[in-house]
């Protein structure tokens, strides 16, 4: 992890679309009167989803005005949380978990595949402009380690060969199905042969 880089080519302005504005109003209603500023996190997320998965500075200002809170406070929050992107990401944004359990199960291999297939450095968009990858801390799916999050989906139980397949599918813009790549259903126990040859459920 390093300090998030803010994109140098920023759009001039940002505004919620009409639908999102309605949504923002509904989000605000969830908070008690006088505590509307707490809505800053869902609103930032809303702005991110509206703007191709990254938040421009104009949106920080817009949300600051919208909640009448100082710009620098919105900026603090946006830089604190790793799930807010302050620079453009690929259409397929790959987040590879490299926390201990995933690392023990071979997350490094996956990172290497990403480096060779997408871009040498993380947070850099691939040559065809479709993908970018980054390392993240625990995604909370250790039971399916190693794990990779792509936009809103999890790809689980990965290994080198499967990851290459999945990455190729993204690069060709024909994404494969998310889920376990060792034939598991969700987090169900794996069928594995015991030493004596008997199946052990």
């Amino acid at each position: 992890m390093s300090l998030k880089k803010v994109y140098d080519k920023q759009p001039e302005s940002f505004e919620f679309t009409k639908d999102n504005l309605d949504l923002a109003k509904r989000i605000l209603e969830k908070y008690p009167k006088g505590k509307e500023k707490s809505a800053v996190m869902p609103l930032l997320y809303l702005a991110q989803s509206q703007n191709n998965n990254w938040i421009p500075l104009a949106a920080l200002k817009y949300i600051g005005n919208y909640l009448s809170m100082p710009y620098v406070n919105v900026y603090e929050i946006a830089t604190f949380y790793s799930m807010y992107n302050l620079a453009p990401v690929g259409k397929y944004f790959l987040q590879i978990c490299t926390t201990s359990p995933c690392l023990l199960r071979g997350a490094n291999e996956i990172v290497k595949v990403c480096q060779s297939k997408i871009s040498k450095d993380k947070d850099t968009i691939s040559n065809n402009g479709l993908c970018s990858w980054t390392e993240v801390e625990c995604l909370g799916a250790c039971v399916n380690a190693p794990v990779m999050q792509v936009n809103n989906d999890y790809y689980e139980d990965l290994d080198k060969i499967n990851t290459e397949k999945i990455l190729n599918s993204f690069i060709e813009d024909k994404p494969l199905k998310p889920g376990s790549y060792r034939g598991r259903k969700n987090t169900a126990p794996e069928k594995k042969q015991n030493n004596n040859g008997a199946n052990n459920a």
């Binding site: 992890m1 300090l3 710009y71 620098v72 406070n73 603090e76 830089t79």
Partner: peptide, 24 residues
């Protein structure tokens, strides 16, 4: 700056080892 000065212009961005104090 926030409480006495009344100008919320300084903030702490990032976190952990990468935390920085900045004026925007």
């Amino acid at each position: 700056a926030t409480e006495i000065g009344g100008v919320t212009e300084i903030g702490a961005i990032g976190r952990g080892e990468n935390m920085e104090i900045t004026t925007y």
